[in-house]
């Protein structure tokens, strides 16, 4: 089942170091959001594969917005 990776805080997407098709492992950084003058990473909670990246670097995000989707192994 694909899992939505959502913004955990309102801010701007600073980096998305992964792309669709990439294999990721638990604790890998999926997205870095810039908020409150800090860089806040979102890490993979389980191993899986990136299915889809919905937003781009530089886009503003609201907490809860889906940034990418990941298929867990």
């Amino acid at each position: 089942m694909a899992i939505d990776i959502k913004a955990h805080i309102t801010g701007t997407i600073w980096k998305i170091p992964v792309k669709a098709g990439d294999k990721v492992e638990e604790d890998d950084t999926l997205v870095i959001i810039e908020s409150m003058k800090m860089e806040m990473p979102i890490e993979a909670e389980e191993d899986g594969e990136i299915v889809e990246v919905l937003l781009e670097e530089g886009s503003p995000v609201q907490e809860g917005d889906v940034i990418l989707r990941i298929e867990e192994d």
């Binding site: 955990h8 805080i9 908020s35 409150m36 800090m38 806040m40």
Partner: peptide, 8 residues
């Protein structure tokens, strides 16, 4: 804990 949401 800054590790989570920068500690905000």
């Amino acid at each position: 804990n800054s590790k989570h949401k920068g500690g905000v």
